[in-house]
């Protein structure tokens, strides 16, 4: 495919946020989406880590795209990502120790997060550095939005707090199940259903 038929950097950025939202539209990288959204703080840290790795991997892959061979490209992507994840992981262990303890194995699991490999494949291995960086920023913004949406619902209902501050009245009966694993599945399923209600409503209005 020629470069001119691919989306421009601006389009890449906008697409990543809502129209091609990695979590709700492409259903990619669901492991951290469900695992680290018990509190808003850990969701934000995770999104930041993913953004750094995605940006680094996209830029590097875009720079070396001329030398990539088809049968080896996935290995090259994964090794690039693993390098960046090691960097982020060690940095976080040095400066944000409690948070890195809380995220536990999910930080190294960014290596096998499908979003990053998918973006390397779809965008960075075909387009220049500018488009790749814009794409990485847009996708990570979309990822952050989705994670924050799920995490705020779970933390608000499960603990009555947001980012550790008490939001709900003190008499709020904490729905502990929202903090536990089942709550992640329920929240994600219901939020997706809500999105498709909105979409159905819009289509209906367009037809009428």
């Amino acid at each position: 495919m020629s470069e001119s038929s691919l989306p421009t950097p601006g389009e890449r950025f906008v697409n990543g946020v809502l129209p091609e939202n990695p979590v709700f539209r492409q259903l990619l990288g669901l492991c951290p989406v469900l695992a680290v959204t018990a509190t808003l703080a850990s969701a934000l840290t995770m999104s930041f880590a993913v953004a750094v790795v995605l940006l680094g991997a996209n830029v590097v892959v875009s720079l070396i795209r001329g030398w990539l061979r088809p049968h080896l490209r996935i290995v090259v992507f994964t090794l690039t990502i693993a390098g960046f994840v090691t960097l982020v992981d060690k940095t976080m262990a040095a400066f944000l120790y409690p948070m890195s303890k809380e995220l536990g194995p999910y930080l190294p699991l960014i290596i096998v997060n499908c979003i990053i490999i998918c973006r390397c494949e779809v965008c960075a291995s075909k387009q220049g550095v500018g488009a790749a960086a814009a794409d990485a920023l847009g996708q990570s913004l979309g990822f952050t939005l989705a994670l924050c949406a799920i995490a705020s619902v779970r933390e608000l209902l499960g603990a009555g707090t947001l980012l550790g501050f008490q939001v709900m009245p003190a008499a709020w009966p904490e729905w502990v199940v929202m903090i536990l694993p089942p709550g992640a599945f329920f929240t994600f399923g219901l939020l997706m259903a809500l999105l498709s209600v909105i979409q159905l409503h819009r289509e209906h209005r367009r037809v009428v």
């Binding site: 709550g183 992640a184 599945f185 329920f186 399923g189 498709s196 209600v197």
Partner: peptide
């Protein structure tokens, strides 16, 4: 129910 068709219902069942 129509909004739940596909992935949402799988998620709720997973829950």
């Amino acid at each position: 129910p129509r909004p739940f068709v596909g992935i949402p219902v799988v998620m709720v069942v997973g829950g």
